[in-house]
Design a binder for these strands. Structure first.
Length: 479
RNA sequence: CGGGAUGUAGCGCAGUUGGUAGCGCGCCUGGUUUGGGACCAGGAUGUCGCAGGUUCAAAUCCUGUCAUUCCGACCA
């Protein structure tokens, strides 16, 4: 009986069917539910709470750097979307159109924003007059719509939540510095808060954002060896400014075009958390964004003093941590499994034996190790445990990435490495020609992810054509 | 967008040659339990994804459609 029950609630083994495992976690950890429209997911309270924590953390970081939040409309008139040529070409195939208002056909159809560059540009043209108006440092939290063909929860949904920063600067240098600064914010957030190691790099020209001069990105390697673009930061130069006629009077009293950036990250990061840290027991959440950082489970709760001790513990911890006391009448074993599925970083068990001894049992989610901890000074012990979880998670993720990173000099070496060790990051040299980028993809199935900012010399010639190499590129299969 | 698979109770599934729907878990009530998904007894829950069609009769056969999922091509 017990076995049957376990089977019903169990998730697919991660290493047996990674895709199915991922989907199971999304549903069983109560992160999402499906709606009746393809690719549009319902983010449930537990999933949304993760997003809120991500938002809070990043929003504080943005504001500390002088950015202000704004809100733009969700509709873009077709003529406005069409103003920048590369931009339209990039997004037109995947926008959703509004053609009617009530029963009446609109004279001009409106697209549901797939991104808001055009709206920001239209607005910037109206508000930027003088060099004194610069820089403009805006950000917006909203949802955007892209009519994807293949959809997956968090990783690729037709509507997704994100943040898009849009800034305007006097000089190209200043805008470029902003672009890199924000890339670093994302990288720091991923590594320190999400415990996800990332590679910072520049996209190859074929992989740039539609309308950007340079696209920077951070790439993270998931447990199955596929890469996830976790955030992007774009340097626009003055291309959009020219297309939208945004000018300002400079100090020398001449009209100039400002330089622009945009940068964003999405609910996709939640998918990244799942695929980087999750295991066969379910989700594993980084303490920094976990809706519940500590769960307290009273054991033998009916025995005198147990609930009182658990409540006292809860009161002690709640000032410093997001803590939950589960005093429901489920069995302790059920609760252990439940909060493991939900990825709660630290679990505290407290029963009669512990109370007697003035201690509790502390279990860290990422390695399921149990430790006996004194109730005296428990706040600091829990803080240390949470740090231990974050560090352990990072180390584990980094170890997986190192294990799956291959330096290759030839296409054959790439195929051999992937064949032998499975998917991962391939470091290989590139001449800079798009034909060779395509050539690598055709010969090995992996694509260029980015040109890392930190370059290494893996060889002197292009892995594809053998001509002199210009960059070391990281290649991988991607989500 | 192409190829495969799947839609029956909240979840996992069964349902034979067409005859009007069942099992396990969960849920509710009562009791006993409680240190790794407890046990006993009783109870409630369904337009069989949706729309057409064939038939005296459709969960079952046919057509269409929507959604989920996997594999490719495209994209955060």
């Amino acid at each position: 009986m017990a076995n049957e029950k376990k089977t019903v609630e169990q998730i697919t083994n991660r290493d047996v069917d990674f895709a199915q495992w991922y989907t199971d976690i999304c549903k069983k950890a109560d992160l999402i539910d499906y709606s009746s429209v393809k690719g549009c997911m319902i983010i449930r309270p537990y999933g949304y709470a993760i997003w809120e924590n991500i938002q809070k953390n990043l929003d504080d970081r943005f504001k500390a750097l002088g950015h202000e939040n704004v809100y733009m409309p969700m509709f873009i008139p077709e003529s406005l979307l069409n103003k920048e040529k590369d931009h339209v070409e990039g997004f037109a195939p995947e926008v959703a159109w509004v053609t009617h208002g009530g029963e009446e056909k609109l004279t001009e159809r409106l697209c549901v924003r797939p991104t808001s560059e055009t709206l920001f540009c239209e607005h910037f043209a109206n508000i930027i007059r003088s060099y004194r108006d610069l820089p403009v440092l805006y950000n917006q939290w909203c949802s955007v719509v892209r009519w994807e063909k293949t959809t997956r929860p968090f990783l690729r949904s037709r509507e997704f939540l994100w943040q898009e920063g849009h800034t305007m600067h006097e000089t190209a240098e200043e805008a470029r510095a902003e672009t890199v600064q924000m890339l670093n914010v994302y990288a720091d957030f991923h590594q320190n808060d999400l415990a996800i190691p990332v590679i910072k790099g520049v996209k190859t020209p074929s992989d740039k954002f539609a309308g950007a001069e340079d696209t920077y990105a951070i790439e993270a390697l998931m447990h199955d060896g596929k890469s996830l673009q976790a955030a992007t930061s774009h340097f626009f130069g003055d291309g959009f400014a020219k297309a939208f006629d945004i000018t300002y009077a400079s100090k020398d009293n001449t009209l100039k075009y400002p330089f622009q950036t945009s940068w964003g990250c999405t609910t996709r990061m939640i998918g990244g958390i799942i695929m980087t840290h999750g295991d066969d027991n379910g989700l594993v959440l980084p303490p920094s964004v976990a809706p519940i950082q500590v769960v307290i489970i009273p054991v033998a709760a009916h025995k005198p003093g147990v609930i009182e001790a658990a409540t006292a513990l809860y009161d002690k911890l709640k000032e410093r941590f997001r803590v939950k006391l589960d005093d429901s009448d489920q069995s302790p074993g059920w609760k252990y499994a439940e909060y493991e599925m939900k990825g709660v970083p630290v679990r505290i068990e407290i029963g009669p034996r512990d109370i007697e001894a003035g201690q509790c049992v502390c279990v860290t989610r990422h390695n399921l190790e149990k430790a006996v901890v004194a109730l005296d000074g428990i706040e600091d012990s829990v803080a240390a445990k949470l740090q231990e979880v974050r560090d352990g998670m990072y180390a584990k993720a980094l170890e997986n990435r190192e294990k799956r990173t291959y330096s290759c000099r030839t296409l054959d070496e790439i195929n051999e490495a992937l064949e032998k060790n499975g998917d991962g990051f391939v470091k290989a040299m590139w001449c800079g020609e798009e034909e060779c980028e395509d050539g690598v993809k055709a010969a090995t199935g992996i694509g260029s992810r980015c040109i890392p900012l930190e370059q290494e010399n893996v060889g002197d010639v292009c892995v594809c054509c053998g001509k002199p190499a210009r960059h070391m590129v990281v290649w991988a299969r991607a989500y």
